[in-house]
Design a protein around this nucleic acid. Structure first.
Length: 236
DNA sequence: GCGACAG
DNA sequence: ATCTTGTCGC
């Protein structure tokens, strides 16, 4: 019989992945307020895929939190390590994201993820997972409400309403532009919900989505385009 | 059992 | 996520 080795912490099945989430969930820190908005570094991370070529490209873009100017950026290219399964997104994104973060020449500060943190079936979404693995403060800002419910926030930028899992507030639907669909903010690690929303507003002076995710999205797409077929080491 | 479902 | 042109508007 053959023994297939999987890198440490890399589950091979959905069942294993859920078990990993249940174990790591206990390491999430929720009693810290988090870094004050407008200070230090804020880093956006995102991933782009080409399942046909089995290539995944991640990007990490560090911004100065007060000016939103780009301070540093890094990318990592690898192979798709897990299929997309609702609730298990982190296993598909994290290997490449970790590699990109490690390639940065400076501390990331607060990490802003494109997805959820506590707003997750087992309260352990991408932002929690990344936060626990790196020890960095992290939040999730998603474009869709996933399976959660929410009342429509007021029409003005800054309005919000609870994102609910039954009666439990797992995040917030936050309006970042007047009259535009809200984004869905949730806590990842070492940041409280009010601070997470304040950061999200500080990062959206002009568009619905945070500058961090906009920059990271553009960068990982470019990295994917510029990766020749048959060349994708890193992010193992 | 069936459908929904972050990216 | 990704497949995809033009088009309306500031």
């Amino acid at each position: 019989m053959t023994t297939v080795r999987t890198p440490a912490g890399r589950p091979a099945t959905e069942e294993e992945a859920r078990a990993v989430q249940d174990a790591l969930r206990e390491r999430v820190v929720l009693d810290e307020p988090g870094p004050p908005p407008g200070t230090g570094h804020v880093t956006g991370v995102d991933v782009a895929y080409d399942d046909e070529r089995d290539v995944v490209a991640a990007a990490a873009v560090v911004l100065d939190a007060s000016t939103l100017e780009v301070v540093a950026e890094a990318t990592a290219v690898g192979h798709v390590s897990f299929p997309y399964v609702p609730g298990l997104l982190a296993f598909r994104e994290i290997p490449a994201v970790l590699a990109a973060l490690e390639a940065l020449p400076c501390p990331p500060g607060l990490v802003v993820c494109d997805g959820y943190g506590l707003a997750h079936p087992r309260r352990f979404g991408l932002a929690c997972h990344l936060g626990v693995l790196t020890g960095l403060p992290a939040i999730g800002v998603a474009k869709n409400p996933f399976t959660f419910t929410h009342a429509d926030p007021g029409a003005r930028r800054g309005s919000s309403s609870p994102l609910l899992a039954g009666t439990e507030e797992v995040g917030r639907a936050l309006r970042t532009r007047d009259g535009v669909k809200p984004v869905f903010v949730s806590v990842g690690h070492r940041v409280d919900l009010d601070t997470a929303c304040a950061h999200t507003l500080a990062l959206t002076p002009a568009y619905r989505l945070p500058e961090t995710t906009r920059r990271a999205d553009a960068l990982c797409r470019r990295a994917l385009r510029e990766t020749p077929t048959g060349q994708a080491p890193a992010a193992r």
